[in-house]
């Protein structure tokens, strides 16, 4: 269970709320700056990677603090996080196939 005192726990929650807010603002700002200034020159992949990393960061905070996973026994946390690894190959395979279909469409255009 949580080792923080009630006041500390309350403060922690609002702190995480602020962190998530800042990260979201940063994401949106990056998206808009890219859209208005750098769309032509910079490859989208750069910003996309930034978005993916920041989203993972938000996910980390939500799971560890809001859903309390950081304070649970490690064994339970492991059983919850391991299935996500299966998704990794799924995501890679599906994106790869999507690209392949695009190349086929262009081939047979």
């Amino acid at each position: 269970m949580s080792t923080l005192s009630p006041d500390a726990a309350r403060q922690r929650v609002w702190k995480v709320c602020r962190i998530l807010g800042y990260v979201t603002i940063f994401e949106v700002a990056a998206a808009l700056i890219y859209f208005y200034f750098f769309k032509e020159d910079v490859p989208k992949l750069l910003v996309s990677s930034l978005f993916i990393i920041l989203s993972a960061l938000k996910a980390y905070f939500i799971m560890s603090e809001f859903m309390h996973l950081k304070y649970e026994l490690k064994a339970m946390t492991l059983t919850i996080l391991t299935p996500f690894l299966f998704l990794v190959w799924g995501v890679i395979a599906f994106l790869w196939e999507g690209e392949y279909w695009l190349s086929l469409k262009e081939l047979w255009r």
């Binding site: 998704l87 995501v91 599906f94 994106l95 196939e97 999507g98 690209e99 279909w101 695009l102």
Partner: peptide
């Protein structure tokens, strides 16, 4: 995830 990876596949298959 099933829905989102479908989105990923369909989107990457479009220009």
């Amino acid at each position: 995830a099933g829905l989102l990876i479908s989105y990923g596949a369909v989107r990457t298959s479009q220009p």
